[in-house]
């Protein structure tokens, strides 16, 4: 579901590295001043855009007396790890981390496995109905999360899957599999037919062509779509919120959203520390894809 999926296409990250320190290579008189202006704008923009992230981190390291002031402190005067300690001990961070890990990794692995075969079929073969399947795949990944939530909840609750890891995992597979197929299909399409035909000439069966030739070549795509699927499932809130009622089954986002003190009060320092802990892997992953894709991605067949 793209509502929860990161707004991620892969081509955009693919391109800034190249040596094209763009347009402004020649320093004509005309462009010198605008460039100075551009840099000023860029600095202002960066400060504005990074500020919420900065404020989260800043608050996370502040003792409460410095966080809860009507006149903000722009850096922690007495930096403390207390908030992180609170985040770890409030509820059961490690349990929620484990829950998230189980459900998310299960959904990712399942989606990759199923998606790999489906993507191969949809990219390396022509058959009747292929186009319709592609259209359906495109359409379903646009569905609003709340629309699927109702029937999934009703069906899953009748067959005892609500409140279980498997149930949540399947809901995530439904959300990310179409997208995974779409991403990996792009990678399959980038592999020249000659590679496949050469293997076939050597007498390889379809299965062998797939497992020995195509799958290894499509590994970057597996990684890319795996990361996308991870981010989408890791970030989901509303499905887990509706499916997982027992606190011991919460995933990290549900825990984060319900992060309160024992008195049900909001502890902003702890909440920000928890947000840092929760966001960290995702931001790291974004950095990783960034690098991976710059080199590994052919001009993207991948859409959001």
């Amino acid at each position: 579901m793209t509502t929860t999926a990161p707004r991620l296409s892969t081509d955009e990250v693919s391109d800034h590295a190249p040596a094209s320190a763009p347009t402004a290579v020649k320093s004509t008189r005309r462009r010198k001043r605008p460039r100075w202006i551009s840099h000023t704008i860029a600095v202002v923009f960066s400060i504005v855009w990074i500020f919420p992230v900065y404020w989260m981190i800043n608050t996370a390291f502040k003792p409460r007396t410095e966080a809860m002031t009507s006149k903000p402190e722009f850096y922690p005067h007495h930096p403390t790890l207390h908030n992180f300690a609170v985040a770890f001990t409030q509820g059961d961070f490690l349990v929620y981390l484990r829950n998230s890990a189980i459900v998310v990794s299960g959904a990712v692995v399942l989606s990759i496995l199923l998606g790999l075969f489906a993507a191969a079929a949809l990219s390396r073969f022509r058959f009747r109905g292929r186009r319709s399947i592609m259209v359906v795949i495109l359409v379903v990944q646009m569905l609003p999360a709340t629309a699927l939530l109702i029937p999934q909840f009703l069906i899953f609750s009748q067959i005892g899957l609500v409140g279980t890891y498997v149930g949540l995992m399947l809901a995530y597979v439904a959300a990310v599999l179409p997208f995974t197929i779409w991403v990996m299909r792009g990678f399959f399409l980038a592999i020249p037919m000659e590679v496949e035909e050469a293997a076939r000439m050597d007498g390889a069966s379809t299965w062998q062509v797939l497992t020995r030739v195509l799958f290894p070549l499509v590994m970057p795509g597996v990684i890319a779509s795996g990361v996308f699927a991870f981010i989408a499932a890791w970030n989901d809130y509303i499905v887990a919120y509706t499916f997982m009622q027992d606190q011991s089954h919460y995933t990290l986002p549900v825990w984060l959203a319900s992060f309160t003190t024992q008195t049900s009060g909001t502890d902003f320092g702890g909440q920000m520390a928890a947000s840092v802990l929760f966001s960290l892997p995702v931001v790291v992953f974004f950095m990783i894809i960034q690098r991976n894709l710059v080199s590994g991605m052919s001009a993207g067949a991948v859409k959001g």
Partner: peptide
């Protein structure tokens, strides 16, 4: 397109931070 490589890098990283924040976390922030 109008920035030096270093500055472009800075802006890109800033963008990735804003982009990569899970929306549950950013909503709380």
């Amino acid at each position: 397109t109008r920035l030096s490589t270093v500055m472009r890098y800075v802006v890109t990283i800033v963008l990735i931070f804003a982009w990569g924040m899970p929306n549950v976390a950013s909503s709380l922030v």
